[in-house]
Amino acid sequence: METELDLEALWDECFAMPDASPDVEYAKRYFFNRTEQQIFECFDRNVIERTSELREITPPLFNLYFPHFQNYILKCKHDSMDANCISSCYMGLLADKLQQGIVSNKEIIDKAALINKHFRENLSFYNDYPEIYGDLKLKLDEADKLLAQYKIG
């Protein structure tokens, strides 16, 4: 388990990156020292921004905080007006990070399979605007391929 001091050092490394995005500051504000419920509320307010912030943090921080996004999908009730955006943001971020090979937390891989199943079982809810957000079924098929070949370690 990371200590607060270790986490501060990880955040300092993130801020020190030469190409650090301004989103890093927001990421720390919304993720560091927050309960999962507080993080869920931040996702509720703006899933697009939280996704952007997760995209910009370093791999160690991503591996630490991305499971909260996964739990947000699995544990929270979503408004039908937000469902397509949530699934699109999540699937895009997951695919990017798997393709970059930076996922080192087995929990992320295990939950990704559960989320893919959840999305497939609720496809009409999370995919009712494919002309805007893209076809979720195709994204799920691609994610399944990436997950099947992904190796941690």
Rank of each mutant, 00 (worst) to 15 (best):
P22E: 15
A113E: 09
T51L: 01
H68C: 13
D110E: 13
S104A: 05
N63Q: 05
Y150A: 02
D12V: 13
D110W: 04
Q37G: 05
G153S: 13
P60F: 10
S88M: 03
E8A: 11
S124V: 13
Y30W: 14
K151G: 03
C85G: 08
L140Y: 01
Y129H: 13
H118C: 06
P59S: 10
C89Q: 14
E41R: 03
L114S: 08
L123I: 15
Y26D: 07
V24T: 10
E107C: 11
C42S: 13
T35I: 05
K145A: 07
K137D: 09
I48H: 15
M1W: 05
L7H: 04
C14V: 12
Y90F: 14
Y65F: 15
C89M: 14
N33R: 15
L98V: 01
G153A: 10
L7N: 11
K106G: 11
D23T: 11
D44P: 13
G153M: 03
G134K: 01
Y150I: 00
A9V: 06
I57A: 11
E8N: 12
E49M: 09
L61V: 02
Y65K: 06
S21K: 14
S124N: 15
C14K: 08
R29D: 05
G101M: 05
L98P: 06
E8V: 12
K28F: 04
L64C: 02
P18H: 08
A20Q: 06
E41P: 01
A20N: 09
N71G: 01
C89W: 03
L147D: 05
Y129N: 14
S80T: 09
L7E: 11
L54A: 08
E121K: 15
C42F: 02
P67R: 02
F15Q: 11
P130W: 01
Y126G: 01
T35G: 07
L136E: 04
L74M: 13
I132K: 13
N33D: 15
K137Y: 03
D12E: 15
K97S: 07
A20V: 08
F62C: 02
N127K: 03
A112V: 05
L10F: 07
I73G: 00
T58S: 15
K111V: 04
E13H: 09
N33A: 13
E4D: 14
V47N: 07
Q100E: 08
L93K: 00
E13W: 02
I108P: 10
C14A: 14
S88L: 00
A95V: 08
D82Y: 06
D96C: 08
A16Y: 04
Q37S: 12
D19V: 00
F40R: 02
F32K: 10
D23W: 09
T3Q: 11
R50S: 12
L61H: 08
D141W: 03
G153K: 05
L138G: 07
E53A: 12
M91G: 07
D23R: 15
Y133G: 01
M81V: 14
H68D: 11
I86P: 00
D6V: 04
R45T: 10
M81N: 12
M17A: 11
